[in-house]
Design a protein around this nucleic acid. Structure first.
Lengths: 143, 143
DNA sequence: TCTTGTTCATGAGGGCCCTCATTAAATGGG
DNA sequence: CCCATTTAATGAGGGCCCTCATGAACAAGA
């Protein structure tokens, strides 16, 4: 029997939840969750020059969401928010040694899990799946 | 250039967020959000016999999540929680007239949006995409 | 009957995402 | 130089999801 559009969409949601759950369970023991770690990596790479708004742009999420994630990272002492002397509206983000430690600790784990998740698809499936996701994403971006 | 596993997974997240945003924007004006409306439909179909735990099972989400959604639905007076006389631990869920009105008001909208989202894929793409999602979901369910 | 184990709903606390409103600061004309 | 606009970050309030802990009620064996 063929799936309805609604069923497929419901399954996308379930898939997202299942993946996040899997990542977070493993990674929560090592410092930061997946979304947080991705921000941490970006902050580290930018060497103290990144602003909250940059992260929002880069990951395509709302600025308010970034503030919230940074609150958590700062609470865990993985980053610090430094006031910018030349523009007092913004704060530059800097990773702490503890933050760098968390990044290097979780990097291999993230790779590993990502790979384990996707390897259930054979190469052709993987490619067409990636294309379909891209297509769906593209057509719903601006809507 | 080929996408990494991590990139594909990140895009699944973005897709989920974009879809939910699209649904919620339209549906929030009509009473209940997507997840809430799906629960409402189930509650309506069960004609007063459904428990919170049944919803958790049916949708594959945690009981605590259901409590939260039901709080919102009850706040909006779309459902009521009725104590069960034979087993005082549980509460039976009943849809209100306002709830039924919300369901019938949003039903065509949900169908419409679902269809608009999925129609960017041609039939073969749609099928292989659905299969891939299924496969990924299946292999990550228990993990 | 009296534990012990189970089930149900929920409190408490988080993560990740959103919109809208607000404050503070920078900036570009008049 | 001053005001209007724009930009940065965040407060307030929601939605959807999780785990772990709690309390009440039921079920069943000793």
């Amino acid at each position: 029997m063929n799936k309805t559009d609604e069923e497929i969409i419901a399954e996308i949601g379930q898939l997202y939840t299942a993946l996040r759950k899997r990542f977070d369970r493993v990674m929560s023991e090592h410092g930061a969750s997946l979304a947080q770690t991705k921000m941490l990596v970006a902050i580290q790479a930018a060497a103290g020059m990144l602003r909250a708004a940059d992260i929002a742009d880069r990951f395509g999420i709302a600025p308010r969401t970034v503030t919230e994630a940074l609150d958590a990272l700062e609470r865990e002492a993985l980053i610090v928010r430094m006031p910018d002397l030349s523009d007092r509206r913004m704060k530059r983000l800097k990773i702490t040694p503890a933050g760098e430690a968390a990044v290097s600790r979780t990097e291999p784990i993230r790779d590993q899990i990502s790979h384990e998740i996707m390897e259930v698809l054979d190469p052709e499936e993987r490619t067409s799946f990636a294309n379909a996701v891209q297509k769906l994403l593209h057509c719903n971006q601006w809507t």
